[in-house]
Amino acid sequence: MSTSTKPTLMLEAPRPQKVFAGLLTPAQAARSIGVSVPELDSMRVAGNGPAAFALTSRVVRYSLAEVAAWKSSQVS
C-alpha cells in the first residue's frame, strides 16, 4: 500500500510579518506603564515619557528596555 501526498498549491507567496524584536507598540507600552495610549502620545510629544522610535512617519515603537528604565525612574 503506497501513500501519496498531493502537492500544496500556493497561489500567493506568504507575506513576511513585520516583527520588531524588543520593540513595543504604543498600546503595549501604555499598558506597561499604566496610562492610556492618548496620554502616552501626549507624553511623547512633550518629551516626558519613555524614548520612542519613529520607524516611519506613522509608526512609533518603544524599546522594552527604555520603557522599563523610564518606569523605574518614575518610582520615588
Rank of each mutant, 00 (worst) to 15 (best):
K6G: 06
D41S: 13
K6Y: 10
R44K: 14
R15K: 15
P7D: 10
A68L: 12
Q74N: 07
Q17W: 06
S32Y: 06
A69D: 11
S73W: 04
G49Q: 01
A30N: 08
L40R: 01
S2P: 13
M1E: 05
M43T: 03
V67H: 00
A13P: 02
S32E: 14
A27V: 15
Q28R: 10
A68T: 07
A13H: 09
S2N: 10
V67C: 02
Q17Y: 07
A27K: 15
A21N: 14
I33D: 02
A30T: 08
A52R: 02
R15W: 05
S2F: 07
S73I: 06
S36R: 10
A27Q: 15
M1N: 03
G34H: 03
S2H: 04
L40W: 00
A27P: 00
L40P: 00
A51R: 12
T56C: 05
L64Q: 14
R58C: 00
Q28N: 11
V45H: 14
P14Q: 09
L64C: 06
S2V: 07
T5V: 09
A51H: 07
E39D: 08
V67M: 01
E66V: 04
V45Y: 08
M10S: 13
A13S: 12
A69G: 03
A21F: 08
R31W: 00
V35E: 00
V37N: 03
R58L: 02
S2E: 12
L24A: 02
S73Q: 09
M43E: 02
E39S: 15
F20M: 11
